[in-house]
């Protein structure tokens, strides 16, 4: 599948933003996070900034962005529509929570409900994003039980990495659950990513050129002539092949920069002073964000669509 920059930026940036919103909501409701105005302002600016940048960049993927408002209408059947609804709906409690955090400086009573709604909205939006891909049977690598946990965990850990950095930036001590939970979440995400790749590499083909044409027993059908001499939309969009040969190298980049390095940093954070923790947590957040972009690029570039069976692929 064609790895469109707009979609990669959308899913990674909004993923980090919703991950951060989720943790702010949960941490806020549990009273674990500082209610200082400066921290609140920075945290919500970063989270909503990531989310908004992602949503805006996704609009660049559209042929008619001016009709994007119509995408709120088909939530009964379409995961993309559900994602749009969830994304916009999450702004309400998130903005309200930002207001409460920075102006009221109080997260008790009804604010706790707003905080929980923010966390719920953020998780729901990422879940819907993942389901857009999970639900496509024509792309077997995406139609996998690992797609949804992968999206959720990557969003959670990128959000967590930025939250740690923000806490150190404002001279706050990260709450113990966050400090201890991050390495476990990174390990879980690493595990899911490895499982997703293993499944993708080993799964039996779901369709073959024989089942796509009905012309004979396995191994008997070969493409003789393509239907057109030049490229077309289908080939550009769904028969992307460039860079697949670098996949092994890019997977190593993903592993090191998304999981290994941030995990190592996460493990030493509780034992270092703030002067070391601040640049270390920034390095972890940047490294992880870059790694997730590479992972998402692979998510698209390595995925094969069944339409390629009509253009020379033997099985998908």
């Amino acid at each position: 599948m064609h790895p469109a920059l707009s979609i990669i930026l959308f899913t990674t940036s909004s993923g980090a933003g919703y991950g951060l919103l989720f943790l702010l909501g949960l941490g806020g409701a549990a009273g674990l996070l500082p209610t200082s105005r400066g921290f609140g302002l920075a945290a919500f600016a970063l989270a909503l900034g990531f989310v908004t940048f992602g949503l805006v960049s996704s609009a660049f993927h559209l042929g008619h962005p001016e009709r994007a408002w119509r995408a709120f209408s088909q939530w009964r059947s379409s995961w993309l529509s559900r994602e749009a609804v969830a994304a916009v709906a999450t702004y309400l409690p998130a903005l309200l929570l930002a207001l409460g955090w920075t102006v009221a400086g109080d997260l008790s009573g009804p604010w706790r409900l707003v905080a929980l709604l923010t966390a719920l909205g953020a998780a729901t939006t990422v879940f819907c994003t993942a389901m857009i891909y999970r639900s496509l049977r024509a792309v077997p690598r995406w139609h996998s039980p690992w797609t949804v946990p992968g999206y959720l965990l990557l969003a959670l850990i990128t959000g967590g990495a930025w939250l740690l950095f923000l806490l150190y930036l404002f001279g706050e001590t990260p709450p113990t659950p966050l400090l201890h939970g991050m390495p476990s979440a990174v390990i879980a995400a690493w595990f899911v990513q490895t499982a997703a790749w293993r499944r993708a590499d080993r799964a039996a083909p779901v369709a073959t050129v024989e089942s796509a044409t009905g012309l004979g027993p396995p191994g008997s059908v070969r493409l003789l002539d393509p239907p057109h001499s030049e490229a077309n939309y289908l080939l550009r969009e769904m028969a992307f092949r460039i860079g697949r040969r670098h996949a092994a190298k890019l997977r190593r980049v993903t592993v090191v920069s998304t999981f290994a390095l941030p995990l190592a940093i996460g493990l030493i954070l509780p034992f270092v002073n703030r002067l070391t923790a601040l640049p270390a947590s920034l390095l972890a957040a940047l490294s992880m964000s870059l790694g997730v972009v590479v992972e998402r690029w692979l998510f698209f570039a390595e995925a094969r669509h069944t339409v390629t069976l009509y253009y020379g692929a033997r099985s998908v």
């Binding site: 599948m1 993927h61 559209l62 042929g63 008619h64 962005p65 009709r67 994007a68 119509r70 995408a71 379409s78 993309l80 857009i132 496509l136 049977r137 024509a138 792309v139 369709a207 796509a212 077309n232 939309y233 289908l234 969009e237 769904m238 669509h305 069944t306 339409v307 009509y310």
Partner: peptide, 26 residues
Amino acid sequence: ELCMGCGLCAWACPYGAREMDPLAQV
């Protein structure tokens, strides 16, 4: 008139039966 040109339907079709109009972007 309702199509925003997101292309998701073309991804969903296993057969490649849908193509984006290069000028109209629907």
